[in-house]
Each structure stands twice: as structure tokens, then as C-alpha cells.
């Protein structure tokens, strides 16, 4: 209790720290939002709750890390920084391929089944991916350090590493690209149509099988790119997937399916809430706060639904 009061006191004594916490939270929240958006897509379109979401993120991180470590790009005269940045689109493409394979081998068999089958199948996929990453890259923590400076404000209390800034900008660009794609392209329209009513879409000549496959690859690709950004800003480890999966679930549950601005807002919000929580209650409660928020959201949703049902009666 003393510790909590002390921590709250710090927030009051140094108001600028609030800003720092929010900035940090928004930065990590942007990446949560990306993974969550992919989840919302898959969930909304094919009703598959993908528990391997976080493992796609981590796998994407390893793709980029491996690319930089092999030194192919550096051997044609590119710097480490550029190689890491190129890692983001490369991870996007590679993970799209892996997503497609996962869809054809596993997901396609569980689309029409009940919730538990898809949960079990994707949970199995998650375990398998973590183990494969572990065998390929070892269990040590990995990260890429970009040769960028850090910007300091307010006597050095606020620090914004340029690498983080670059990462957040890339995340924003990716989100924007996906939004435009969903709005304007034929495939995007087909995906949205399938999400609304798969049967009707089929009747109108949409190859829903292709749409499913595409959606799942797109999701894996978005996650992969998010992972490639994470590896240059934070650290990755083969068994870190679950933390990103949990956050993605919390965000999607809070924002609801098909509510893209909601997903982004919830992503940023949960990032900030976690940072606040870890400042006030201690960093060990960071994830507890995410899960607590999930409970709260579920509770509120339940109340709302109850109200609706009463109206219907």
C-alpha cells in the first residue's frame, strides 16, 4: 500500500511523467492494435478465434531478425538499419505464405466447426509454432538494435527512441494500407461481404474459400509485420506469443468485431492502461491489468446485452 501511494505521489510531483507513460503506452498499444485487427478480421470473417495470433507476431519477428543476422542485405551495401526496416515487408510476405499454409492444412478444417474445435486447433498451432521457433532459433531472447538516437524532452524524463517512432509510423502506415485495401479493392469488398453473410456472398458469386484463405494469410502477414517492428523496438522469444494473443483477445472483445476505429482506440488505450498500471501497482501486475480490463469489458457487455433482450421481449 505504501508503495502504491508513493508511486501515485510521484505522478503528482512530476506531472510530466504522466505524459511519458501515455507516450510509452501508445507506442506499444499501436502494435497490440495491429495484432488485434488481424484477429478481428479472422474472427469476423470466418468465425475462427485464432489463439496462434501472438505466435504469428513472434514468427514475423524472427523472420526479420534472421534476415538481418544472415547479412545478405548488408553484403550488397545496405546498413543494419535499412536491413531491419526491409525486414518488415519481408516478414509481411513470408508470414502471408505461412498463414496460407496454416490455412490450407489446419484452419480450413475447422471453419464450420464449433468454437472449441477452432480454439483447440489454433492452440495446437500456437504450441507447435513456439516449439519450431525454439528449435530453429534457440530459447534466448533476441532483438535488433537500430543505430538511431533517442530524443529527450523535459530534462530527459521523456525519452522517445527514434527507432520506436519509426516503428509506430510503420504500424500506422500498415493500418492505413489495410483500411484502404478493405474499403476500395475488390478483394476487400469480397471479404466484407463474406463477413456479413457468407451464404449470400456465395450466391452472388464470391468464392468464399478463396476469401477465407486470403483473409487468414492477410492476418498472418499483418501479425508478421507487427512482429518485425517489435523485434527492433522490444525483445522477442519463442514463447512470448501468448502475451500478444491475450492482448489481441482483450482488445477485440472490448472493441467488438468490425469496429476498426474501436480496435485501434482499444489497442492504444490498453497500452496506456498497462503502463499506468505497472507504474502504480508494480510491473508484475502489467498483464493482470489487461486481463482485469477484459473481465470488466465482458461484464459491461453482458449488462448491455441483458438490457437489449429485455427490450426485445
Amino acid at each position: 500500500m505504501d508503495q502504491i501511494l508513493f508511486n501515485l505521489g510521484l505522478l503528482v510531483d512530476y506531472p510530466v511523467v504522466n505524459l511519458k507513460i501515455i507516450i510509452d503506452g501508445v507506442m506499444i498499444g499501436a502494435l497490440f492494435a495491429l495484432a488485434a485487427y488481424g484477429l478481428a478480421l479472422v474472427w469476423g470473417v470466418m468465425n475462427v478465434k485464432n489463439l496462434a495470433q501472438g505466435d504469428f507476431v513472434i514468427a514475423g519477428g524472427y523472420v526479420s531478425w534472421a534476415l538481418v543476422r544472415t547479412g545478405w542485405l548488408q553484403s550488397i551495401g545496405l546498413s543494419d538499419n535499412i536491413a531491419a526496416l526491409i525486414g518488415v515487408p519481408v516478414a509481411f510476405l513470408v508470414m502471408a505464405g505461412i498463414g496460407w499454409i496454416a490455412f490450407r492444412t489446419i484452419i480450413v478444417r475447422v471453419i464450420e466447426r464449433d468454437v472449441f474445435t477452432s480454439l483447440l486447433a489454433t492452440f495446437g498451432l500456437a504450441i507447435m509454432m513456439a516449439q519450431i521457433l525454439n528449435l530453429l532459433f534457440g530459447s534466448d531472447t533476441q532483438s535488433l538494435k537500430l543505430e538511431y538516437d533517442t530524443l529527450y524532452f523535459a530534462d530527459g524524463l521523456i525519452d522517445v527512441p527514434i527507432a520506436k517512432l519509426v516503428g509506430v509510423c510503420m504500424a500506422a502506415a500498415l493500418a492505413l494500407g489495410v483500411i484502404l485495401f478493405m474499403k476500395n479493392s475488390r478483394m476487400g469488398q469480397a471479404i466484407r461481404a463474406t463477413a456479413q453473410d457468407a451464404r449470400a456472398a456465395q450466391v452472388l458469386g464470391i468464392d468464399t474459400d478463396r476469401v477465407y484463405a486470403f483473409t487468414f494469410s492477410l492476418n498472418a502477414a499483418i501479425c508478421g509485420a507487427a512482429g518485425a517492428i517489435i523485434v527492433m523496438v522490444w525483445v522477442i522469444q519463442p514463447f512470448y506469443g501468448m502475451t500478444y494473443s491475450i492482448r489481441a483477445f482483450v482488445i477485440v472483445t472490448a472493441a467488438g468485431l468490425g469496429n476498426l476505429p474501436g480496435v485501434i482506440a482499444a489497442g492504444l488505450g490498453i497500452g496506456a492502461a498497462e503502463q499506468y498500471g505497472s507504474h502504480i501497482f508494480g510491473i508484475s501486475y502489467q498483464q493482470a491489468i489487461a486481463v482485469l480490463l477484459l473481465l470488466l469489458v465482458l461484464f459491461v457487455r453482458l449488462m448491455q446485452q441483458r438490457r437489449k433482450r429485455q427490450v426485445l421481449q
Partner: peptide, 22 residues
């Protein structure tokens, strides 16, 4: 400061900010 890090730690900026203050 006496904090416990979570098992899946990837960000400890909250602690380091506190370190800067105290």
C-alpha cells in the same frame, strides 16, 4: 524500489522512469 518482473517481460520502462525519479 523493490519490483517483481513478469515472466514475459518485454518492456520495463515503467521501472526505469521510477529509477530516474528516485
Amino acid at each position: 524500489i523493490d519490483e517483481k518482473l513478469p515472466r514475459d517481460l518485454s518492456d520495463m520502462s515503467a521501472i526505469l522512469t521510477k529509477v530516474k525519479l528516485v
